[in-house]
Every structure is written in structure tokens, then in C-alpha cells.
Design a protein around this nucleic acid. Structure first.
Lengths: 345, 345
DNA sequence: AACGTTTCCGAAAACGTTACCAAATTTATT
DNA sequence: AATAAATTTGGTAACGTTTTCGGAAACGTT
């Protein structure tokens, strides 16, 4: 199988390699006729420029990486697809990497950057609890999205972050439940032990709401998912809810910090003979498509994922091209009131 | 920010570049002491070999691509993650690309292969209806998985395929429904108009089952999803079921050719006041995790996705390394009988 | 002490591209 | 017609690796 190189094309057309290069890269200094002829030969012989050689020459490979950590993938699959679409538009290629729990995100990023000469990194999920020093070492822009809190002592000019205010939105959900008359509100939370995690923030929001309404916090209603499980999986929600039920503590509402957890929990409730929302109101967080199709449909906090994903990608490109500086954008989420919650009678 | 190259490391250690290269690549012809020293300097200065330069030199970039087409991502996200894990083990990098409906998969593969010097391609989903000629042009191995039928006239030695027998498994599901006493069985099907599509195969299985049991086929119970929608999305299942209900045709069972469709349909049924499974039995296909957590839990055909994904990746690597030839593996699926179906009384 | 082996190492030639610079050609200006 | 200016072109040096090949150094062997 013959794979032509730029030299072959040049020879075939009776021109120099630089001319072919000009034709490929839309350089202005070229006779339209020669260009036409070259392009035709390229088409004919199925020549495609070798990316490695290109990247080697021009120091700027048009490539970014998306690093995803933790959580079940339901929520991210959507975001990744959108980001990929944006990359395509800009003719960037995208490297996707799912990180294991024990892999260090910054080290991984560092390695990828050097190895592949990446121009930027998008970071989805996980928990960022590194030092400023470490972040400073990264030579390309970093954009976080849906990562939880970034430690306060890290200078904001070192990274971008696109998120919703998890703590506030979480409080909003709990306020809503309280507004419905609920007082015994259980919470299902993942990764809350870890500082700066999304789980922690959402739990804080829960505490905020209870405190605001002078409801005493009952630790037996704060249920942590087991660390042995996939953090935000349905199964994890299911098992944790089972444990809560087994504990015998009374509650009239159950708020899970992710839709997937809520769906798992709803299942456990059903198996225990508790009807949602008659016996217990259930609510989630995230606003994944699925939440609208389960029965009863799930009351949830909808994050504007499409917009967030799109803006994350665009922001990164703008920073790469120097059009914008690092930004910290907080989106407004939306409480979707659906069938799984109801007022206490 | 100083990014050391192999030359810098060589100079730093007072050796030649080739010696550094030998140290990095575990070549035997090197003094353990010098190697040790070099490795140490590399560590110290954070040197990471440039991938483009490597790939340029050795004709074999350690990289493959996964091309995903059509369907909603719920089903594939899982597979992709597993494939990525296998790649990591083999120190391959993985290029992921979601193809738009109008993008030609083979052309895209061709382009990627040349551009990135990929060693192999995995193809997930979509419909393969190309000619043998086109497939022949590809210079690297191709492994399909969950792609529907590959046209018969294409020589089997040109590609690998890992799948379940969609037609047979689909028939199994319908046989099961018939066994429960159902006679008026509606089917929700996507992409069935396209030859060789997964939807078509599953529809054929439905026909097979009815024919076997001498049940007359009622075209009004064969519901095609609208082409304007995302092929296997929940929403598409929801809308199509709505239309079926509006049509007024009687049915006691509804079989959707994907779990996501079934879940959407179940929602439509619920909204129409039809209780599942009391009024109508619902079943799906695929066996995604979710199917077990919705209420009522969904009877479905479970494809062994984990195994399929893993084997797809491994097979590709084996073919690349010449350990195995192209294979055509058909896995056994499993009918999971759950709450959404029941015998007619 | 002289020789053949073995072990280790460095110089230099690729790999396929882009970009700079100078040369060749065409066009415009006087 | 002669010159200046503008437009196209080709040669070639990088980019950072790996690999081949020959040579130097160290080791045995007689």
C-alpha cells in the first residue's frame, strides 16, 4: 500500500515541496493555477499530511485534552460530546482520558502536555486539591468545569472555572423541600469527606438550608455512599438508601446530590414498599435527561450542561489564542419541580 | 518555561543522544550505571519525550481510534471507558471521534489513519453499508462492534466483528412475550429503514417470532421512530409511543429495540394512564445498568457489553501485533425477566 | 604481549513537514 | 527599453526522535 508524502506529490506535479505545502495550508503566496493542480493531484492520490511531522515542525499542535475523573459517566458523556463538536469546528483534535481514582490529574496533564504538545486542558469532575505551585508549573491553560471548589489560596489568574454555585443551588433544593413542609430530610451524599469536592459543597448547602430554617441537623439522616463504590452511580444510591432504610430513622424527604443517586435510591424505596412521593419525596441534582423519563419524574436542579460544555471549550480556545484571559463563570441552575416531590399534608 | 529535549539531557549527562534514547527505551546495549544516571537526570528535569517526533521516526505510532456513530450515548459510554482502559494497559493512546450522521465512517477512518498513523480502528454503532472495495483500501485492521449486519458480499477476512446475533436475540424476546400469552405486540424500532442496521435486524427478529407462532403481522403496531430525532434516545421512544397511543390500535405488549426507547415509551404509557405491566407489558433491549433501576424494572436482552468492549480492544491489539487473524465472534445475550412484563390473564 | 570478543557508546542519517530566504519570473512604471 | 516592484517559486535548515553502523574500551584467551 503506497502512502504518498509531500515529496511524492511535489515530484508528481513537478514543483517543489514548499509549493505543495503552501497549497495545503492556504498560503497567500501561490499562483491559483498551480494550487489548483496540486490540490487535484492530492485528491487523486489520496494524500493526507502526516500529523506527527506537522506537529513536530510547528511547535503548536492543534490539540487539547479532556481529563475526566470520578463520577459515573452519565452526566459527562453529554458534555464530552459537545466539547468534541467544538473541537471539530476549530480543527482541533481532542484527547480524552478517564482518570483512575488514584491517578494524579496534574501529573497526568503535565505528561500529556509535553508528550503531545497540547495547547490546553479541560478538566471535568473530580476533586482539585492541589497546591498553587503545582498548577503554576503547567505551561498551557487549564479550564475546569463541574469540579467542585478550587482551593481559595490558588490565584484565580492561574485557571478558569465554569460551574454553578453548587452550595447555593443545593440549598435552594433543600429550601424547596422545607417549603413543602418537610422537616425530616435525609441526604444522600458522595465524596463529602473530601475537601473541595462537589459532594461536600452540596452537603454544605443542605446544612445551610436546615440552619436557616432552624431545623436541627440529624446526623443519622446524612448518608454517605460507600467509598468502595463508583461515586455517583445508581447502584451506589441504591445501596446507600437501603442502609438508610435499614437504620429505621424516620424521614419524609430524601435529597440525593446527583440524579443517578436519586434514581438508585428511588428504587430502594420502591422495593421497601415506600411510595414516591406519597410516603417520601425524592429529589436529585444535575438535571440529566433521564430524570424526566423515570416514573415518577424526578424533581431536580438542572445545570445548564450544554451551555457549560460549549462555553468551557470556547473559553479554552479563546485563552489559547490570547483573545481572553482566565475567567470564573458561575451559571444559574434551575429547580425543576416534577412528580417525585410533594407537599406534606 | 524550559522544556528539555533529549539533546539537553544528553548534554547534561555528558553522553550522546543515542545513549539517552537507549536509556528511555530499555535497550539492552547500555551500561546499567549510565542508564541509572540518565534516568535520574530525566526525572530531575521533568523530561518527557516528544510524541510527534517519536511517531515520526518509528513508523508505528502506538495509537488507535474509536469511531462512534449514531445512537444515544448511554450505551456506548460504558464501552468506551473499558476500551480506554485496555489501551492504557498496552500503552496505546486512543483517539475518540463521534461521527455526525452525514459523515462517512470509512473516509473518516482513512483520514485519521494517514494523519495520525493509527494502527487500528474500532467502530461502534452506526450502519455499515459500504463496498468491499472501500474497506480494502484501509491499511490497518478494523474491528466492528455493535454495528448491525455487515453486508454479506464483503469478505470476512477483511474485518473483525464482535456482536450478538441481534435478530435471534430479538426473536427470543418476542417469543418470550408470546409465551406470556401476548398476541398484540407493538414494536418500537429505530433506523429500520436502513439496510444492515441494528434496528432492521431486531425488527426482523420480531417478524420471525410472530411468523413462527402464526400471529399475523399488524403494520399499525410497527412503530418507526421519526428520523428527525436522535435515533435511540429516550425522547424518541417517548414521542413514538405517544403516536402509537394516539393511533388507538390495541396492544398488550410493547417491545422497544433499545432500553432507552423503552424507558421513554414507558413514560408515555404512564402519562396515558396505562399501568405497566398491568395494562401493558414493556420490554427493551441492551441491558444497560439503568434498566434495573427504573420502576418497574425493565425486562430486557442483556448484551455482555463489558466483555464485548474488552474483547474488541484486545482483538484489535492482537491483530495489530499479528498474534491473531480477523475474527467474527458472536456472543450469547441473556434475557433478563424483570417487573415490566407479565403474563396475560 | 598480541589477539579476538564482547560491551558500550557517539555521529549522523533518516522520518515528513513548515518556514525562511533567495532566486526566478512576471508585471508595472518610467 | 530599462528598471523597479510585485508575485511565485525552490532549496534547505530546522523540529526531536530512533536507528544503524562503525569505533573505542574493556575483557578473556592463548
Amino acid at each position: 500500500m503506497f502512502e504518498p508524502t509531500i515529496k511524492d506529490i511535489a515530484k508528481l506535479c513537478g514543483v517543489g515541496v514548499s509549493t505543495v505545502s503552501r497549497a495545503i495550508n492556504n498560503h497567500p503566496d501561490i499562483n491559483p493555477e498551480t494550487k489548483e493542480k496540486i490540490l487535484q493531484t492530492i485528491e487523486e492520490y489520496g494524500y493526507v499530511p502526516n500529523n506527527s511531522a506537522r506537529n513536530l515542525k510547528r511547535a503548536d499542535a492543534k490539540a487539547i485534552a479532556v481529563l475526566v475523573k470520578g463520577m459515573s459517566n452519565l452526566f459527562f458523556a453529554n458534555m464530552i460530546e459537545i466539547i468534541e463538536g467544538e473541537c471539530k469546528k476549530k480543527h482541533y483534535s481532542m484527547e480524552l482520558s478517564y482518570l483512575e481514582a488514584d491517578e494524579d490529574e496534574v501529573d497526568m496533564a503535565q505528561k500529556l502536555i509535553k508528550e503531545k504538545r497540547l495547547r490546553g486542558i479541560i478538566f471535568l469532575g473530580g476533586i482539585f486539591s492541589h497546591s498553587e505551585e503545582k498548577l503554576k508549573k503547567l505551561s498551557v491553560p487549564f479550564v475546569f468545569s463541574t469540579v467542585g471548589a478550587i482551593p481559595e489560596n490558588i490565584s484565580k489568574s492561574l485557571y478558569s472555572n465554569i460551574c454553578v454555585d453548587d452550595r447555593r443551588e443545593s440549598k435552594r433544593m433543600v429550601d424547596y423541600l422545607i417549603g413543602l413542609g418537610h422537616r425530616k430530610i435525609a441526604i444522600l451524599v458522595a465524596e463529602a469527606e473530601e475537601e473541595h469536592s462537589i459532594g461536600r459543597l452540596r452537603l454544605e448547602g443542605y446544612y445551610d438550608a436546615l440552619r436557616d430554617s432552624d431545623i436541627e441537623i440529624n446526623p443519622r439522616l446524612v448518608c454517605h455512599t460507600s467509598q468502595k463504590m463508583i461515586p455517583f452511580s445508581m447502584n451506589s444510591g441504591y445501596m446507600t438508601a437501603k442502609k438508610l432504610l435499614a437504620g429505621g430513622e424516620e424521614f419524609t424527604a430524601l435529597y440525593a446530590v446527583a440524579d443517578t443517586l436519586a434514581i438508585g435510591a428511588a428504587r430502594a424505596l420502591y422495593e421497601a414498599g415506600r411510595i414516591v412521593p406519597r410516603d417520601v419525596s425524592v429529589s436529585g441534582y444535575d438535571g440529566i435527561e433521564l430524570a424526566n423519563y423515570v416514573t415518577p419524574s424526578l424533581t431536580t436542579i438542572r445545570q445548564p450542561i450544554e451551555r457549560m460544555a460549549r462555553d468551557t471549550a470556547r473559553l479554552l480556545f479563546d485563552i489559547i489564542s490570547g483573545k481572553r484571559q482566565h475567567q470564573h463563570i458561575v451559571y444559574e441552575a434551575e429547580l425543576l419541580e416534577r412528580e417525585s416531590t410533594r407537599a406534606i399534608v
